[in-house]
Design a protein around this nucleic acid. Sequence first.
DNA 1: AATCCCGTTTACGTCAACGTCAAGCGGTGA
DNA 2: TCACCGCTTGACGTTGACGTAAACGGGATT
Lengths: 160, 160
Amino acid sequence: MAMELRRPERTFTIRQLCTEFKATPRALRFYEDKGLLTPARDGMNRVYSYKDRARLILILRGKRVGLSLQEIREILELYDEGDDAMHQNAHSLKKFREKIVVLEQQREDIEGAITELKTACERLETRLAEKRPDLLPKAADYDQMLRARLDGHAEMAMGK
Amino acid sequence: MAMELRRPERTFTIRQLCTEFKATPRALRFYEDKGLLTPARDGMNRVYSYKDRARLILILRGKRVGLSLQEIREILELYDEGDDAMHQNAHSLKKFREKIVVLEQQREDIEGAITELKTACERLETRLAEKRPDLLPKAADYDQMLRARLDGHAEMAMGK
DNA sequence: AATCCCGTTTACGTCAACGTCAAGCGGTGA
DNA sequence: TCACCGCTTGACGTTGACGTAAACGGGATT
């Protein structure tokens, strides 16, 4: 039975995907409205395949890096293949190249922001240590943070 | 005269800052509304100091890495210093730590997205080269792209 | 049969970050 | 003086990505 869950014929309900990826049903239906997902139906109800789930993963990651749903759809359509529109493809190619430039800039920005935040943290920490050491975070807080990170990574691993 | 422009007493009009950073007056006034900027006044008109300009740079970079104006304001208030609120600082410390985690995750996402886009570009390019080589971007296009990137970097250098 | 519970559609609401007018002020050049 | 320019303050509009509420359907359980 547990093995069944791993078989690629497996399907998912909307809620299963929502809880797995911390999304809402509203969001998934919205993505469907916008043409990013097209799950099958069992009567009225949506039935998500493994492929749908893979698309959802791409959607969510696209969002995290700041792509619009429209841009994400273009990428997904590329993977769909099968149609003729080569002009479309030429256009996509150009837009993707532009997006890569933007993302590389973003990566620089983020690295800068990370180091800046870290130095700000150090400043805060030493100042707090001097004047109000009682306000410094306790070991328990760190524990909770670590838990959160591990949870996050567990999901990532499953997603992959 | 040119040297005057470099002296830190220099001030800026709203439009000067806007053209320098490709923002709009509306945006700068909006940031002011939200408490991120507090330029001096000459009669009715806003007069931005070098400090204001520095804050604006931080605001824009914060935006590029996906911080909300609210979050940016917290960071800026930290640099203001001078007040007592150490609890505030303890809170900021916690939030900054969380934000660092988020940003590190974002960096991972972006790196993933970049490689994914690059492979997508390659697929597109080979497919176009096979079937419709006439649609491939010309050397002129690349030239224009390079110009754009160089312009961008020139601004970064000025901003720094 | 009644009650959950999960799912559905339709439609309106919300929030951030501005854009877009409209109307008016203050200086400057012709 | 007049026309123009750039700046100002409201105030309303917009866009993307959903949230929320209403009203309903259909199994499963009680």
